[in-house]
Every structure is written in structure tokens, then in C-alpha cells.
Design a protein around this nucleic acid. Sequence first.
DNA 1: ATGGTCGCGCAGCGA
Length: 257
Amino acid sequence: MRIATWNVNSLKARLPRVEEWLGYAQPDVMCLQETKLADTAFPSLTFQALGYDAAHHGEGRWNGVAILSRVGLDDVVAGFTDAHEPDTDARLLWATCGGVRVASVYVPNGREVGHDHYRYKLDWLARLRVHLESHCDPARPLAVCGDFNIAPTDDDVWDPAVFAQSTHVTPPEREALAALEDWGLVDAFRRHRPEPHLYTYWDYRAGMFHKHKGMRIDLILATPPVADQVSFALIDRQARKGSQPSDHAPVLVDTRP
DNA sequence: ATGGTCGCGCAGCGA
């Protein structure tokens, strides 16, 4: 099974590129983030015509996550299901696809260290960990895919010195990510591709993509029943090139049957 | 890097 994730930075703006990508990459499950669409504007029929069932959790101008699947799409749940206030943002969607519980996640950016949004980011990640503890089992197939807005290690940024004291690399953020791994998730791409300086995001500004100055912040975190079966892993840099690209590239992993 | 571009939506914010 091929599982992919892509922060598309507006599905309306990116639909032609997404259709093109589905055509040549042929994922079985595709998680999308930053669709920036209301549910009523989500192009379900376009994906249906390409052979994909789809679920979307959106709010309109910002955020928005989706899961496309051609191996079944069941038990769809949007957001957290706990006793706390519902998340103000559309950042989390669950579905079961081909026997794998899948989450499409768009972790808050954090904006600045010390900002209210930075606290929201850390709280959001802690809440995700609690959700895993209460709803999921690390012994069963699970893949949490999306834009985590965290570079797990200094190997995942082009110049750690530039990012010192910045969001995406701070110890509290990395510890929050490590807490997910402590529960039982494995960075499936990294396990298969250990070499440093492989990125999934490059700022549109200043020709950062062409200078190879990026960050690896889009992750596929999977439990061992999935992660142990990965046979291939790729960041598709081609998708970051050409006309009207997202500022993120898709990430995919293949698992053995 | 903190200039430099996008997307949204029509000013300026968020990333």
C-alpha cells in the first residue's frame, strides 16, 4: 500500500497539480493539509472520478485537512473526541483505509516562541498524544500523516544555526514529537532514508528551493505494523517544481502487503 | 534568511 501526505497550500489553487500527482504517483491513501476550503467547496466528484473516496474537514479560509483513499474509507472522525472544547481550527481528520487507521494532521505553526499560538501548538500535540492513548493501539496499523511544523532533528533543517531559538526546532516542540514516538509511532520515512538534508518544505521567498534551503516537517508517523513493512520512501521534489507549486512536496511510503 | 513569495480576498495577515 502506498500512503502519501502533502500540504497543498490551498486545494483550490492546487487542484490541477494534485490531480496530476495522483495520476502519476498512484497513492492508495493520500492525506492533504491546508486545503483552505469549506466542506461544501471540497471537490469530492473530481476525486471520485479518479477512483478515490474522500473525506474533508475544513472551515474555509484557513487550515483544512482531507483523506483520499482507493482502498476504502470508513469510520471518519473529524477533530479530537475528548471532553475538552472542540478545536477552534480544522486540523485533524481520521479514517480507516485498507485496514490502516489514518490521520491527516496539520499541526499549528506556532508563529513565534512565547506566542499564544506557540502554546496552542504544544497543547495541540499533547492533546494528540492523549487521543492516541485513549483511542489507538500501537500494536495495530496506524499512520499519522501530515505537516507537523517540527523538524525532528538538526539534520532536518538546512542550517540549524539559522533556526536557533525559532519555532519548528525548539526542544519543547521536539519533545512533544518525541512523546508521540514514545507512545509507539515511528518516523517511517526517516527509518528508510537516514541521510541528512532531505526536505519537504521550502519557503517561496528568496529562491530557497533552488538553494536547497528547506526543512523536513512533513512526516509519516506509523506504528510498527506499518513502519516495519516499509519497502520504499520518497519525497517527490518534482512536485515542488514547475507551475504554481505548493511550498511543500509530497512524502510517500510503500508498505509490503 | 528575516528583503525576496504565495494564498486569501481586497488590506494586510499568516505561513
